[in-house]
Deep mutational scan, measured.
Amino acid sequence: NITNLCPFDEVFNATRFASVYAWNRKRISNCVADYSVLYNLAPFFTFKCYGVSPTKLNDLCFTNVYADSFVIRGDEVRQIAPGQTGNIADYNYKLPDDFTGCVIAWNSNKLDSKVSGNYNYLYRLFRKSNLKPFERDISTEIYQAGNKPCNGVAGFNCYFPLRSYSFRPTYGVGHQPYRVVVLSFELLHAPATVCGPKKST
């Protein structure tokens, strides 16, 4: 009989979030998941669920729940959905087409922007091929755009693959930082360890 609440607040209220290319994953298990708490945590810009209804979450049980978190800019949030393409979905964080879970995003301009520009958040701009779903690539190998090998040196047709967002508070919403948490629900042929409040007794 599990009584402890799932530590969603640790994920959502973390002081620092990860850069999207090096997104963070927390496995959540053996706890009571009260998803209604999430609705009250922040004024969400996005709370979209796929393959599951957000209002039914509190009635369900899962084997595992994974919470992935990272920062992107406002106009990239739409890429965090099944079947999307674009720089983020292709080279940084890719959801599977049959994704079961929820994408939660909110504006973090007050936390993640600086007047002089916050350069701490990076994204991958160049990659030889698209990522597979939930693949994480943290390599910093020089990207070869031409025929000549780069031998690890940046220059003509040889690019450092990561680029930094420079978040400034005066930017338009599309270029402001957004914190994203992706909850993916895993149903294996194994005992369910993460249940809503109704199912945990």
Rank of each mutant, 00 (worst) to 15 (best):
S19D: 08
A67W: 07
Y21P: 02
F167N: 05
F134P: 04
V11Q: 04
N64G: 09
P133G: 07
P177E: 04
V173K: 14
R179M: 05
S164E: 13
N120H: 12
D9I: 10
Y121T: 04
Y165Q: 05
T85W: 03
R127I: 03
R73G: 06
P197A: 15
Q176K: 03
G196W: 08
S129A: 12
Y165W: 02
V20M: 02
Y50H: 03
C102L: 00
N157Q: 13
Y21D: 05
Y39V: 12
G83L: 08
V181A: 01
P133M: 02
K26L: 08
T170P: 08
K132T: 09
R127F: 03
F167H: 05
G152A: 08
P177T: 03
R124F: 03
G152S: 10
N40D: 12
T55C: 08
R124H: 03
G74A: 08
K128P: 12
L187F: 11
S166P: 07
N4Q: 13
L162Y: 02
A33M: 15
H189K: 15
L125E: 15
S69H: 01
T85K: 13
T170G: 15
G155R: 07
D112H: 01
Y165D: 06
I104C: 06
L38N: 03
I28H: 02
S184K: 08
C158A: 02
T201L: 13
V71Q: 01
G172D: 15
D98W: 04
F47M: 15
A14Q: 14
F12A: 04
T3I: 06
I142G: 07
P191K: 13
S166A: 14
A33W: 15
L95Y: 00
L125D: 13
S108M: 03
Y121C: 05
A33G: 08
D90K: 10
N40W: 07
A89F: 01
S139G: 10
L41Q: 12
Q84A: 15
L131G: 03
Q84E: 11
L131F: 02
N1I: 04
F17M: 06
L125I: 15
T46I: 11
N4I: 08
D137T: 01
F8W: 09
Y91I: 05
L125G: 15
L57S: 05
S69L: 02
A145R: 10
N13K: 05
G51F: 00
I80C: 00
E135T: 05
Q79K: 04
Y178S: 06
S184R: 07
L183T: 00
C31E: 05
A154G: 11
R179Q: 04
L131S: 03
E76W: 11
D137C: 03
F44M: 14
P169N: 12
V20L: 02
I2D: 12
V37S: 14
R25A: 02
P82L: 00
G51Q: 07
D34C: 06
F47C: 13
R136C: 05
L111N: 11
D59G: 10
N118R: 09
Y143S: 07
G155Q: 09
R179P: 03
R27P: 06
Y39L: 14
C158Q: 05
C102Y: 00
F156H: 14
P7K: 13
D97P: 10
N120F: 08
F47P: 01
P54Q: 13
T85C: 05
G74P: 04
Q79W: 01
Y21T: 05
K48N: 10
R27S: 09
A192L: 12
K114H: 13
C195Y: 07
V103H: 00
R124M: 03
R136Q: 09
I104M: 11
N13Q: 05
C150Q: 05
I138Q: 09
N130G: 08
W106V: 04
P161Y: 01
V71S: 02
I72M: 04
F99Y: 02
F156T: 15
L188A: 14
A42N: 10
N13T: 07
Q79Y: 04
F134W: 10
S29E: 10
F134Y: 15
V180A: 01
F156W: 12
Y93H: 01
P191G: 14
K148L: 12
F8Q: 03
H175I: 06
W23P: 04
Y93D: 02
Y66R: 06
N24Y: 03
Q176D: 07
Y121G: 03
N24F: 02
A67G: 00
P54M: 14
Y35C: 06
N1R: 08
V65H: 01
S129I: 09
I72A: 03
L57I: 09
D59Q: 13
G83Y: 09
Y171G: 15
K94H: 07
I72Q: 01
P191H: 12
G172M: 12
K114G: 14
K56Y: 06
D112K: 01
V11E: 04
V77M: 05
R127M: 03
V32F: 09
C102I: 02
R179H: 05
R168I: 10
N130R: 15
P197R: 15
C31N: 05
N40V: 06
N87K: 11
G117L: 05
P149F: 07
D59A: 09
L187A: 11
N13A: 05
K26R: 13
H189I: 09
N24T: 14
N40T: 12
A18N: 13
A192Q: 12
N64M: 10
A154T: 14
T201I: 13
Y39G: 14
N24L: 02
S36C: 05
P7D: 14
A190Q: 13
R168W: 09
N40F: 06
C6K: 02
G74E: 08
F126V: 13
K114A: 14
S69W: 03
G172R: 14
S116F: 11
S108I: 04
V194C: 09
R124W: 03
P177D: 05
N92P: 03
G51A: 03
Q84W: 05
G196L: 10
L125H: 15
T100N: 08
N40C: 06
N109M: 10
I80Q: 02
F70S: 02
T193L: 10
K48A: 07
Q84K: 09
Y66T: 14
R78K: 15
Y178N: 06
T100M: 14
Y178F: 13
S139C: 06
V77C: 02
T140M: 10
R16D: 13
L60I: 11
P54A: 14
T15Y: 04
V37H: 11
N157T: 08
R25N: 03
S113R: 05
G146D: 10
I142R: 05
R27E: 10
A18F: 05
I2R: 13
V194D: 10
S36V: 03
L125S: 15
F8S: 03
T3S: 12
T3A: 08
H175D: 14
R163P: 04
S164M: 08
I80R: 02
C6P: 02
V20Y: 01
Y93W: 03
A18Q: 08
N118H: 11
I138E: 13
A192P: 14
G152N: 13
G172E: 14
F160T: 12
F62G: 08
S184I: 09
E186K: 09
G146N: 06
V52S: 03
D112G: 02
S36W: 04
V65I: 15
V115I: 13
K94R: 08
P82M: 00
D90P: 02
G174A: 14
I80F: 02
F45V: 15
S113A: 13
P191A: 11
Y35T: 08
E186H: 09
Y93L: 02
N120M: 10
I28K: 01
G155A: 09
C6T: 04
P161D: 02
G155M: 07
R78T: 13
T193G: 11
P169S: 10
V182F: 00
L188M: 13
S29N: 11
P149Y: 07
C150E: 05
K148M: 12
Y123W: 06
E186Q: 10
Y119G: 15
C158L: 03
N130P: 15
A18M: 05
N120G: 12
F62M: 09
N109P: 03
F12M: 06
N87Q: 11
T63F: 07
F44V: 13
Y159C: 11
C102R: 00
P149G: 10
E135W: 01
V182K: 00
P43D: 12
Y35L: 15
K94I: 01
L131C: 04
S139R: 07
K132N: 09
S200C: 12
R78I: 09
S113V: 07
E186G: 08
Y143W: 10
D59N: 11
T15A: 09
T3G: 08
E10T: 09
I142C: 07
F185V: 05
V32P: 04
V37F: 15
K132Q: 13
F99A: 00
V52H: 04
A42V: 11
N24D: 13
P161C: 03
